[in-house]
């Protein structure tokens, strides 16, 4: 293994951290939780980088935001954001990217399996984000699902479609 081969995954992971940051700036507010492109890049990181580097990439992204750089949705940052109502979605990125990467790695990289991996990742994301939102606002399960899940389903379907197409375009460019 040449030094470049060991550097490459780290540089790609850093590139995805930057892409997640850019995605966070493109936010559409529709309620307490905005629609953002960052989760598309998070799941894409899982597909492209795999579970280990994907998780490292998201962990670094969260660390940058915690340190104070305005990289969370809509240019916000800080520990307060993690403890806020949308903190569950941010923390949910870690299991989401891990599951997306793991499913993609173990099942293979066909179109259908990529979609399956991203759906599994999205389930993990909402599995952490929605209960967190419910606790933060003291909502009922129905209200939490109505505010934190239902408005995003259509957008997520579009994001998954976009991310799968992107993954299939990017993979041939990446050197193993």
């Amino acid at each position: 293994m040449s030094p470049t081969d060991s550097l490459r995954p780290m540089v790609y992971a850093a590139l995805f951290v930057a892409l997640i940051c850019v995605g966070a700036f493109i936010a559409i507010p529709i309620g307490p939780v905005p629609i953002v492109l960052q989760n598309m890049f998070v799941l894409l990181a899982g597909l492209i980088l795999g579970p280990t580097w994907g998780t490292a990439c998201v962990a670094v992204y969260l660390l940058i935001g915690l340190a104070g750089l305005p990289v969370f949705a809509g240019g916000t940052s800080g520990i307060g954001k993690i403890f806020g109502p949308t903190g569950g979605y941010l923390l949910g990125y870690l299991p989401a990217v891990l599951v997306t990467g793991a499913v993609s790695k173990f099942l293979g990289k066909t179109l259908f399996r990529d979609i399956l991996a991203m759906i599994a990742g999205s389930i993990m994301l909402y599995g952490v984000g929605v209960p967190w939102l419910k606790l933060a606002f003291s909502l009922s399960w129905g209200q939490a699902l109505a505010l934190g899940l239902v408005p995003f389903l259509l957008g997520d379907a579009v994001k998954i479609a976009g991310a799968v197409i992107m993954a299939r375009k990017i993979r041939p460019l990446l050197k193993e």
């Binding site: 540089v11 850093a14 951290v17 940051c21 490292a56 670094v60 992204y61």
Partner: peptide, 8 residues
Amino acid sequence: VALMISLC
């Protein structure tokens, strides 16, 4: 991690 932050 520090290098990844710097590269990002």
